[in-house]
Measured scan of single mutants.
Amino acid sequence: MALNTPQITPTKKITVRAIGEELPRGDYQRCPQCDMLFSLPEINSHQSAYCPRCQAKIRDGRDWSLTRLAAMAFTMLLLMPFAWGEPLLHIWLLGIRIDANVMQGIWQMTKQGDAITGSMVFFCVIGAPLILVTSIAYLWFGNRLGMNLRPVLLMLERLKEWVMLDIYLVGIGVASIKVQDYAHIQAGVGLFSFVALVILTTVTLSHLNVEELWERFYPQRPATRRDEKLRVCLGCHFTGYPDQRGRCPRCHIPLRLRRRHSLQKCWAALLASIVLLLPANLLPISIIYLNGGRQEDTILSGIMSLASSNIAVAGIVFIASILVPFTKVIVMFTLLLSIHFKCQQGLRTRILLLRMVTWIGRWSMLDLFVISLTMSLINRDQILAFTMGPAAFYFGAAVILTILAVEWLDSRLLWDAHESGNARFDD
């Protein structure tokens, strides 16, 4: 018995066209964080690309023209004298008006014999932002004059995390709450300039795509075929072959399989920071003279006294001054041990922890910024005066060393310790 099946006739004509040209192939790229070699397709503007294995951002879609970056830099340069030299806060102490600005706080630190601690604050609040705007201006002028731009481009990517104007702005709020127990506070004209400078700096850093600047100024022929001998440069993120001198053909720094002496430098910085954190938390970090009496505060006791007036601000200072430094030390110690013992479990967790400490590390400088600003506000000789204690130097040095330890660690070593050939990683 035959089955009668109805015929289905399409209502619209289906047209099949042959592909007349070869589909576009992607360029081969190595991930600078996990060293995976993959094919990167062509990316349009405002599109980002991520590593298929570790999800690290390979290409950032946010990109401004150099002219727009230069305009932002010149605007920031105009704001800087007002943000640093004009009063941020006014207080009335014992019937006398006192003005506080950024430069005055750094000068008070240096004047009291601790120039190293003052230079830490100076670099993060004044030096690094000033280098940022002058570097962008150098790129703008240098591109037109045919100057060598490689050193500036190499420095810009590392400079971003040292620009800490946003953290200093939080420190202004913390210092205001600490001082309000002794005097009446009012915002100064410099505060508005400083807030504007923070906003412009944040926007500029978020749109400063150094890798795209490398592509514009020093374009290189990408690798179009897969080759395990391809290496990625950690300076400019170019994937290719080393030249005859073993250097990256684009930025001219040595092109090595792994960062040289990464573990040794990381261990040295980490152990030194552990040693410095002990006096930083045991010795007094601030000293207040009130009517001839002397009151010393460690980091913890200062947080407890701050909690009596504002528990939320005390929580912020606790996280930045105690929780973050010790968390960074514990995480980095764990990561280094996992590399030495070739741990194969929990790779995803370790990668996330490394990215976390990379982002939060700079916030530990908050305590030094609060001390710097408070020193310029309260300084009335023996009637009422505020000065920093010996722990300030140890704390600042420990924070900087932990930042350097994270920067010096080559994250690809975590993958080397893991089993080879993993296309995915999980716990």
Score class of each variant (00 low, 15 high):
residue 38 F to V: 07
residue 118 G to N: 02
residue 384 L to Q: 01
residue 64 W to F: 14
residue 284 P to C: 09
residue 244 Q to N: 08
residue 275 V to Y: 04
residue 159 L to N: 05
residue 397 A to P: 01
residue 392 A to C: 08
residue 35 D to Q: 02
residue 314 A to M: 10
residue 49 A to Q: 07
residue 354 L to N: 11
residue 206 S to T: 14
residue 373 L to V: 05
residue 282 L to A: 08
residue 100 A to I: 05
residue 134 T to S: 10
residue 174 V to I: 14
residue 168 Y to W: 12
residue 18 A to L: 12
residue 55 Q to K: 11
residue 425 F to E: 13
residue 287 I to R: 06
residue 244 Q to T: 10
residue 172 I to R: 00
residue 268 A to G: 03
residue 151 P to L: 01
residue 141 F to S: 01
residue 94 L to E: 00
residue 404 L to S: 07
residue 310 N to K: 15
residue 251 C to A: 00
residue 262 S to A: 07
residue 323 L to D: 00
residue 98 I to C: 04
residue 309 S to W: 09
residue 48 S to F: 14
residue 396 G to K: 00
residue 417 A to N: 10
residue 400 I to Q: 06
residue 204 T to D: 10
residue 410 D to T: 00
residue 14 I to K: 08
residue 88 L to Q: 03
residue 39 S to A: 11
residue 234 L to K: 08
residue 157 E to C: 14
residue 378 I to T: 01
residue 171 G to N: 13
residue 43 I to S: 08
residue 328 K to P: 00
residue 1 M to I: 02
residue 44 N to F: 10
residue 154 L to F: 05
residue 169 L to T: 10
residue 195 V to Y: 04
residue 193 S to L: 02
residue 53 R to S: 11
residue 383 I to V: 06
residue 262 S to T: 11
residue 412 R to K: 06
residue 333 F to K: 12
residue 43 I to C: 12
residue 5 T to N: 12
residue 302 G to E: 00
residue 42 E to R: 13
residue 348 R to F: 12
residue 388 M to A: 06
residue 263 L to I: 06
residue 112 Q to C: 09
residue 171 G to I: 01
residue 371 I to C: 05
residue 321 S to P: 00
residue 366 L to M: 11
residue 98 I to T: 07
residue 133 V to A: 01
residue 27 D to N: 13
residue 17 R to S: 09
residue 324 V to L: 15
residue 336 L to H: 06
residue 324 V to H: 15
residue 59 R to V: 09
residue 66 L to P: 14
residue 233 C to F: 00
residue 198 V to Q: 15
residue 420 S to Y: 10
residue 368 L to T: 08
residue 136 I to K: 05
residue 225 R to W: 07
residue 261 H to P: 01
residue 228 E to V: 13
residue 166 D to H: 15
residue 253 I to Q: 03
residue 342 K to C: 09
residue 180 Q to S: 14
residue 70 A to N: 14
residue 7 Q to D: 10
residue 174 V to N: 06
residue 218 Y to H: 04
residue 336 L to M: 10
residue 261 H to L: 03
residue 149 L to M: 05
residue 392 A to F: 03
residue 141 F to R: 01
residue 342 K to P: 15
residue 105 G to S: 05
residue 46 H to K: 11
residue 204 T to H: 04
residue 257 L to M: 09
residue 60 D to T: 11
residue 119 S to L: 01
residue 306 L to I: 12
residue 182 Y to H: 06
residue 126 I to R: 14
residue 335 L to D: 07
residue 64 W to Q: 15
residue 73 A to R: 00
residue 377 L to Y: 15
residue 383 I to N: 02
residue 96 I to Q: 08
residue 17 R to Y: 10
residue 128 A to K: 01
residue 375 M to P: 01
residue 204 T to A: 07
residue 148 N to C: 04
residue 137 A to V: 05
residue 299 I to E: 00
residue 405 A to M: 01
residue 128 A to Q: 02
residue 98 I to R: 05
residue 143 N to M: 14
residue 255 L to D: 02
residue 34 C to I: 00
residue 277 L to Q: 13
residue 174 V to F: 14
residue 16 V to A: 07
residue 179 V to M: 03
residue 220 Q to D: 04
residue 28 Y to N: 13
residue 346 G to W: 13
residue 205 L to D: 13
residue 327 T to G: 14
residue 323 L to G: 09
residue 148 N to Q: 07
residue 399 V to F: 02
residue 396 G to A: 05
residue 224 T to Y: 07
residue 138 Y to L: 03
residue 22 E to H: 11
residue 222 P to E: 08
residue 21 E to L: 07
residue 392 A to Q: 02
residue 43 I to R: 13
residue 335 L to H: 08
residue 16 V to S: 10
residue 364 S to G: 13
residue 204 T to P: 04
residue 381 D to W: 12
residue 11 T to G: 12
residue 387 T to N: 05
residue 85 G to V: 08
residue 61 G to Q: 14
residue 322 I to A: 10
residue 137 A to D: 02
residue 70 A to Q: 15
residue 43 I to T: 13
